[in-house]
Design a protein around this nucleic acid. Structure first.
Length: 460
DNA sequence: ATACATACC
DNA sequence: TACTGGTATGTAT
């Protein structure tokens, strides 16, 4: 069932372009056939060329790492080993198995909501998004290799009958608010990660019902049409997240709160399944022969010598099945940004006017939360998909359109001057402001629109 | 602090 | 024809 990612061997195509079948609903697909279509649609494009460049950079990074590895002595390794063992011992000693953390994930959320509103879609391959980009796909579509973060025009080649529905964020927000009310019944301090995902700590909830059969929201929420909720239940957030993905497309999975069960669960878990390990880290670890979490534990001394402290500590936690045991809503936000993609833009007036518009949009967003920021970052992406960021930090925090534009236009001007007399051939501009100062969290107030009923069932 | 990369949804 | 947008954080300088 596991592929451990997309780079099973040295095929002649880019691992970063190939189908990412890491997510559920993509098992047993004809990956070769799908990848051929993806490659055919992409090859030669500017996007593809840029991806190729990025992949070369990753390869170089791996080469540097392997060179570094070749210089490691037995002595260094055994010293690191001692350090790792001590740390492992300490971590294990304070392991907290007392909490019951739930990761909730609404399966193919946007697609499910759209299907509720248009039941005809139920039996058709469909995706939400546009010809440029898809955000979700239903299970029929996944069978063709169609998935989130894939451009619609490629998805159409994989599945000519694919129905693409435009996104309706307001609608998803409404449904999300409904679901969140239920989450709050189980944990008033639940942590929303996005419209369709959240972490809950149900330890208290269970404690209050001691002696009762253990109950949790089951996987089926009836809302005009079925909305499937996936639950992962485990002693910490990292494991809960992995668990919620375990029984897709319909189910819940509970990992018991004992060390033995956790360690068995971790053994064969591909590193890519862990949140925070993406395709680059997967590839780097793969170069060291590490594909599953056991390997991670076995090679920890080596990892301690090759990676930064934060990285290998993270790896160590993963290899021991450790994760955060108390969920906390994020404090104040750390940044706010806005960016836009468009057809090639080379005219100066247009570029400056867009820059001003972005500053205005950002100023508006900042105002909504009564925030100001000190660092203004200009982000540019040219028609070859190359990204540049240029930042300037001010002595005082700013928030208005004019204040932002005063900085952003200089940053933009500098970049234009740098390439002149050639024009900047842009496809994206963005404007990022890193706030400090005043933070006010908005209060959610949503009307109840749907009736939600849900099953109660035992989780054992 | 700045630039760029990675990751998540 | 067509490959997102918002936020956080890691890596490197």
């Amino acid at each position: 069932m596991e592929t451990g990612g997309t780079s099973s061997s040295g095929e002649g195509f880019l691992s970063r372009m190939a189908l990412n079948d890491n997510k559920a609903g993509m098992e047993g697909l004809d990956r070769d056939k799908i990848n051929k279509i993806i490659m055919k649609s992409s090859k030669g494009s500017r996007f593809y060329e840029n991806e190729m460049k990025k992949e070369q950079q990753v390869n170089q990074r791996i080469e540097r790492m392997m060179l570094q590895k070749s210089h490691i002595t037995e002595q260094q390794l055994s010293k690191a080993q001692t350090q790792v063992e001590k740390m492992t011992f300490d971590l294990d000693r304070v392991r907290d198995l007392s909490r019951v953390i739930v990761h909730v994930d609404m399966d193919a959320f946007y697609a499910a909501v759209e299907t509720r509103d248009c039941p005809d879609l139920k039996d058709k391959p469909m995706a939400v998004g546009s010809m440029s980009m898809l955000t979700t796909s239903n299970y029929h579509a996944r069978k063709f290799g169609v998935r989130a973060a894939m451009p619609g025009f490629i998805a159409k080649k994989l599945c000519p009958n694919l129905v693409i529905v435009p996104t309706n964020f307001d609608k998803y927000r409404e449904v999300s608010a409904e679901i969140r009310e239920i989450f709050a019944d189980y944990d008033p301090h639940f942590l929303p990660m996005s419209l369709d995902e959240a972490y809950l700590d149900i330890s208290e909830h269970l404690e209050q019902r001691r002696g009762w059969p253990e109950v949790l929201p089951c996987n089926t929420f009836a809302m005009g049409l079925l909305l499937v909720i996936l639950l992962g239940i485990a002693p910490n957030m990292m494991l809960a997240k992995v668990c919620s993905d375990k029984n897709k497309p319909n189910g819940q999975y509970r990992l018991p709160s004992n060390r033995q069960a956790v360690m068995v669960f971790i053994q064969d878990l591909p590193v890519r399944k862990v949140s925070g390990i993406g395709k680059v880290t997967e590839k780097m670890l793969g170069a060291l022969g590490i594909t599953s979490c056991v390997h991670l534990g076995q090679e920890m001394a080596l990892l301690a010598l090759l990676f930064s402290e934060t990285s290998w500590h993270h790896f160590l936690d993963i290899s021991l099945g450790l994760g955060s045991t108390h969920i906390e809503r994020d404090g104040e936000r750390k940044s706010m940004s806005t960016e836009r993609t468009f057809g090639e833009m080379s005219a100066l007036e247009e570029q400056f006017s867009l820059c001003r518009q972005l500053c205005q949009d950002l100023a508006q967003d900042l105002q909504k939360e009564a925030l100001k920021g000190k660092t203004v970052t200009l982000k540019l992406k040219n028609v070859n998909f190359e990204v540049k960021t240029r930042a300037w930090t001010l002595p005082c925090a700013v928030a208005t359109t004019d204040e932002l534009f005063a900085v952003a236009k200089d940053l933009l001007k500098t970049e234009i001057d740098n390439v002149s007399p050639q024009p900047l051939r842009l496809r994206l501009m963005g404007n990022l402001n890193l706030p400090s100062l005043t933070g006010l969290n908005g209060v959610y107030r949503w009307k109840k629109i749907l009736t939600i009923t849900f099953h109660i069932c035992c989780i054992y």
